[in-house]
Design a protein around this nucleic acid. Structure first.
Lengths: 208, 208
DNA sequence: CTCGTTTCTTGCAGCACGTGCATACATTCG
DNA sequence: CGAATGTATGCACGTGCTGCAAGAAACGAG
């Protein structure tokens, strides 16, 4: 729930710090030793709290390990909502995602290690997908509001939000494994392909 | 020789039957009582096996509850691979999905109840997403093979597979909640929108 | 500063989950 | 039939997650 660290008081700052410490500890230990070999006890010890306190912040080991993904999703949603309402939706989506990119070598290494860790444990992978799906749902609400569609009745906002989320995930996945491409270029290309309707390459166009 | 041709032996038939019984029991109990209130012990009892045997077939409660989704994904992948190689990829995807549809009222009730059950438990929802993601990955391999792209280097097959999987999921989600639309129509519309590049409705075209 | 209120941390108890292992049982095949 | 292989079950063990109650820390008013 705590999305902003508005410094409303010592209490909230400490809570945010504890949550961040637990998430960082979970991620770090899972990357180092593999998600399977990390216990709640170890995560709690790393963050200097009791195992019981861990469960006051996260309802499962997996949730802590993907907390950065959840936060990333909330961050993107917030930025999307701040966009001017008359901007074309695809421009808003693309710019928000491109604007959130950290394409530094350190980020690439961190993300690659994180994705590898996710892939090593089915439950963690599922939690990552759930985190992205949460973002997708909020994206769909924003898209619906901006395009005059209804998320409860129209497929359009869901298809757009899914496409954007998948462009993001696909670009990151490929960028983390390939050594010869830029993340921003991949995001741009993914959005361009989606907006072109994903035509089959090397097949004659159906217009003639 | 056995009378039934495709069954390789009593042993394999029994295994398949046990697995199916466990999956059905898990799904039924979870729909009836809520995923949270169903224990492995109850599922095993419903399928007339020991709790220990349950874990010989499924590694978690959630896995059993979404087994039908996993099987559905494998089924679709198989049918996609059987398609003629020269067929346009979007036609193949659309026809395979449309061909798998059971739009009967009973199916709608069953799927609606199932989705509601999924949504009631974060871990089960994550497992559903993981099941769909498994299908998506296999779709991407097939798409890559058919379009001359490389799933390890090109975004195209991943974007196409994601788009198809999301069209499927979006159509089912909406069909399960709305009472006034046909599932096949929704699938058709979703594919049409994606192939058109998901243009923003009610906005003047950017062609001038 | 003091005191009462609110909120967080911690330990404890308890049940359920998931796995390795050994044993008994079923089937397949020579 | 008899050996080899694969399956079901019980047992034990470590771990995960939650409710509860007591203690500690932060807050707000006087």
């Amino acid at each position: 729930m705590p999305r902003v660290s508005c410094e409303r008081g010592l209490r909230e700052r400490k809570k945010a710090a504890t949550r961040a410490a637990l998430a960082a500890a979970a991620s770090r230990l899972a990357i180092e030793h593999g998600a399977d070999h990390v216990t709640v006890e170890a995560i709690a010890a790393e963050a200097d709290v009791s195992p019981r306190t861990f469960h006051n912040y996260f309802s499962s080991r997996e949730e802590a390990m993907v907390a950065s993904v959840v936060d990333f999703g909330w961050n993107l949603t917030d930025r999307l909502q701040e966009r001017p309402a008359d901007e074309p939706i695809w421009d808003a989506l693309r710019d928000v995602i491109v604007g959130s990119v950290d394409a530094s070598p350190q980020a690439r290494e961190r993300i690659a290690a994180q994705f590898e860790m996710f892939a090593g444990n089915p439950a963690v992978l599922a939690s990552q997908l759930a985190a992205l799906d949460g973002m997708r749902i909020r994206f769909a609400s924003v898209v619906a509001a901006r395009t005059g569609t209804d998320a409860g009745y129209d497929m359009y906002p869901h298809l757009v939000a899914s496409a954007a989320a998948n462009a993001l995930k696909t670009a990151y996945d490929l960028w983390a494994t390939r050594r010869d491409v830029g993340l921003i270029d991949l995001v741009d290309q993914a959005f361009a392909m989606i907006r072109a309707g994903l035509p089959e390459p090397g097949r004659s166009e159906p217009c003639s």
